[in-house]
Design a binder for these strands. Structure first.
Lengths: 247, 247
DNA sequence: TGCAATTGTAAAAAGTTTGTCAAACCGCGC
DNA sequence: GCGCGGTTTGACAAACTTTTTACAATTGCA
């Protein structure tokens, strides 16, 4: 494991707008400008939206204005210490994952982190990939759907664990995005959802494809799941509003 | 890199009682009150039932009255030392996983622990998430390993005890990593697992190879086990999501 | 009825993810 | 230090998905 900061990802250039999956917004709280810069670049190349705050006070304000998906937190901070910030945030949003960056000496006490409510920690110097992996794990965790793992209606059954859909006993293959869309619809059955809401919830804050994209996905879902795609029963259009899923 | 993490989860609040089935009861044996409190909170927010005992003697009594699903054990304990407790428990219930919290990362200590019968250990500055991960792994381990030590399908037989795989009666040699990967797949048959999950579960918490590594191992498994590696039946790709093992 | 806005549809274009191979790397016993 | 398996990485092609685009069909309303 000889990780040096150098050749992490050459694949995507740092300044192209990442058009990848719905990752989240990351709040980096760090006062050292060079670390700031490195972290910002690291996460941005991976497709996250990054906000950097240099001190605890401003970080707290930022968090309260718009909570991010994860916080990466240096423990040594001016104005409001990392541990205090951690406590405040955890009191307000227990589910928000916090990854602490610390110098080895800071964590002489294992109690500290637990009490703070931090979810994970990485000691400096850390490998970029390690930090990424931890952030991803942290995200996956909170995002984990603790809801039902199967639904069925009208001869269609959806198994969220297997990520498999069957119609009349035959497996129907859905793409990742189609599956996610279906999942959202199932979880929001009988409610009218706007295209914008779908884009936000299914596609994520990062990507803003044109709203026509949504229509196309609905089209595919209808073709694959409706008995008569021309007159859909489950994936209904609500003209001028959006769509409504009915079991 | 795409995370499957669509932001559509229903977050579970920390203080609501989880309405899902109980994950299991954890016995925490720890004398430091602040660590007690922190551990209790940590596991309870994750949906476990937690019982705390401050010394070895009372822990032993509690264990005998009602064995928990896992024991988390601090080695330094009053009345009855952690290592003694460990021995007694393992003599009575060899299957009960014990995760030891140890103060030092001393190697001889680790050997000792494993001799005691502990299943895993976490050394001093540990991240909460890491501890959680180990507890989960420990739990999964007993529930599966206890039931199956052999599987066979489609002319392939896997013997977990002997660490041997045969295809059509002939021994197929797998490397350590390949075997672990296979084992994980077998234990999670029919479920879609992401590359990140594989990295975490099979490669472990401290290793962070690139996700390309996973693909290569899948490739090897296919070459060694599938009848037609070009169109795999058992090690299926689920595009955009990960892989799914089907018997 | 007619008009403007909205939605359906299919196919092309753009973009991403995965399969595969060869080379680099790492730890270990000689 | 040297070679040896096993493991990881990087590159590129192939497979597959998603987005865009263009046009047709439908809807709601004056």
């Amino acid at each position: 494991m000889s990780q040096i900061a150098a050749p992490l990802s050459i694949a995507r250039s740092a300044d192209t707008i990442p058009s990848t999956q719905p990752l989240g917004r990351i709040l980096v709280v760090e006062d050292d400008p060079s670390v700031q810069k490195a972290l910002k670049r690291l996460f941005e190349t991976e497709g996250y939206a990054v906000e950097v705050q240099a001190n605890g006070q401003s970080a707290l304000e930022s968090f309260q204005a718009a909570p991010p998906a994860v916080i990466i937190l240096d423990l040594r901070l001016p104005k409001l210490s990392g541990s205090d910030l951690c406590k405040v945030v955890k009191a307000q949003s227990p589910e928000l994952p916090i990854v602490v960056l610390s110098a080895t000496s800071d964590v002489s006490d294992k109690v500290l982190l637990l009490e703070l409510g931090a979810d994970d920690y990485v000691t400096k110097p850390f490998s970029p990939r390690e930090l990424l992996a931890r952030v991803r794990t942290a995200l996956r965790h909170t995002t984990r759907t603790a809801t039902v793992s199967m639904v069925s209606f009208d001869g269609i059954s959806v198994d969220f664990k297997k990520m498999e859909v069957q119609r009349d006993g035959k497996v129907v293959i859905l793409t990742a995005q189609e599956f996610k869309t279906l999942q959202f619809f199932v979880q929001n059955a009988d409610r009218v959802v706007s295209r914008d809401e779908l884009l936000n919830e299914v596609w994520g804050y990062q990507n803003y494809p044109s709203t026509r994209t949504v229509d196309n996905h609905i089209l595919k879902l209808r073709q694959k799941l409706e008995r008569d795609p021309a007159s859909p029963v489950h994936f209904r259009t609500v003209h001028g509003m959006g769509y409504k899923f009915v079991r």
